[in-house]
Simulated assay, not measured.
Amino acid sequence: MKAGQLWHREQLLALAAEHGHVPLDLSLGVAADPEPAPAPASGRHREPARYPPSRGTPRLLTAAAGYLLRRFGVTVPTSSIAACAGAKEFIATAPLFLSRTRAATGRPRDTVLIPTLGYPPYEMGAGLAGLRSHRVPVDDGFRMRLDLLPPEVVDRALCLWVNSPANPTGVVEPLAAIAEWGRARGVVVLSDEAYADTTWLHEPRTVLSSGLDGVLAVHSLSKRSNAPGLRVGTYAGDPRLVDELTGLRRQAGLIAAETAQAGAALLLDDDRHAEEQRARNAARIEALVEECNANGLRCTAPEGGLFLWLAVPGGDAATFAREAAVHAGIVLAQGDAYGPAGRGHVRISAVHDRSVIASRLKLLSTRPSGRTRASMCIQ
Rank of each mutant, 00 (worst) to 15 (best):
E47L: 15
R44E: 08
P38I: 09
H19F: 09
L12I: 07
H21M: 11
D33W: 15
P34N: 10
P36Q: 05
A32T: 00
A32K: 06
R46W: 15
P36C: 08
P38R: 07
P36F: 06
P52S: 06
D25V: 00
A41H: 12
A31Y: 12
A39Q: 15
D33P: 00
G43N: 13
A49C: 11
L15W: 05
L15P: 05
L26V: 03
D25C: 02
A41C: 08
V30T: 14
P52K: 09
S42H: 08
H45E: 14
E10A: 08
S42W: 00
G43S: 12
A14E: 08
A17M: 03
P48L: 10
A37V: 11
P34Y: 09
A49K: 10
E35T: 12
G20W: 05
G20F: 01
P48F: 11
V30L: 14
V22Q: 13
V30W: 13
L28M: 13
L28S: 13
H21C: 11
A16Q: 02
P36I: 00
H19S: 06
P40V: 08
A32R: 07
R44G: 00
E10H: 03
A39I: 09
R46N: 08
A17S: 09
E47F: 09
R55T: 10
D33E: 15
L28C: 14
L26D: 02
H21F: 15
P48V: 08
A16F: 01
L12M: 05
P38L: 10
A39F: 05
G29A: 14
P48K: 10
G29N: 13
R9A: 07
P36R: 01
Q11M: 04
E10F: 01
E10N: 02
L12P: 08
D25G: 00
P48S: 09
G20L: 03
E10C: 01
A16E: 02
A31D: 13
A17W: 05
R46F: 15
A14Q: 06
H19M: 01
V22H: 09
L24D: 03
R55N: 02
A39P: 13
E10D: 12
L24V: 00
P36A: 07
A17F: 03
P40F: 13
A17L: 01
E47Y: 04
R44D: 00
P40W: 12
S42T: 10
A32F: 10
P40C: 09
L26S: 06
A16H: 04
P40Y: 11
P48H: 11
P53G: 01
S42P: 13
P36T: 00
L15C: 02
L24H: 00
E47Q: 15
P34L: 07
V22F: 02
P48A: 12
L13G: 05
A14G: 01
P23T: 03
